[in-house]
């Protein structure tokens, strides 16, 4: 079996995580890989929780859902409480400390705590781009997609006139990840 990554991006509705998942999946295709993106709706959707799942691989992807993510982004306390236990052994968990204050004990996964939404709000001036900050951080930390492909995919899917804002947000996420990697 070739290289395979399963990502779950979770938080609250309105944080733009569905679009973030689409952009990662698109970037993976631009990298020449196979990818699949789905939204999972369960009873938790009623609580306002949102999750977007992406599988990236070199081979065919049969079952399209993610049960044990090896990359887990949590951008709300509710999402963290719900999904932290699902993480795959050896996986990576990225926590937005703006909204997640209590972390359960995580065994067998590396946890990166970064203020994603705060960075979007204070450095970029618009919290709405928190999802793009998260994309930059995910790409830098996990390397699941190339920076070049991610930038292309991002620019292909955002409203005209917001290119500069989004580029800055991606850059800020990348830099934010550097602070915890070194």
């Amino acid at each position: 079996m070739g290289e395979r990554n399963e990502l779950r991006l979770s938080g609250t509705g309105g944080q733009g995580l569905i679009l973030a998942g689409i952009i990662i999946a698109d970037a993976a295709i631009r990298d020449g890989k196979n990818s699949i993106q789905s939204q999972s709706y369960g009873p938790e959707a009623r609580g306002g929780a949102s999750r977007s799942e992406v599988i990236i691989g070199d081979e065919d992807i049969d079952y399209p859902k993610v049960n044990k993510p090896d990359v887990l982004l949590v951008m709300s306390q509710e999402a963290c409480d719900k999904f932290a236990a699902d993480i795959e052994q050896g996986g990576v968990m990225i926590v937005d400390t703006t909204y997640v204050h209590t972390l359960p004990e995580i065994n067998g996964a590396v946890v990166y705590k970064i203020p994603i939404s705060m960075t979007a709000k204070e450095e970029i001036g618009k919290e709405i781009v928190a999802n793009v900050v998260a994309l930059g951080a995910i790409a830098r930390i996990t390397g699941v997609v190339s920076r070049e492909a991610l930038t292309e995919a991002l620019l292909a899917r955002i409203p005209k006139g917001t290119e500069e804002l989004n580029r800055k947000a991606l850059e800020a996420g990348w830099a934010l990840a550097e602070t915890v990697l070194h």
Partner: peptide, 13 residues
């Protein structure tokens, strides 16, 4: 008009 694959989710980035 660019590719219509740009139709993403309901949220914006």
């Amino acid at each position: 008009v660019t590719s219509i694959t740009g139709k993403g989710g309901k949220t914006s980035g």
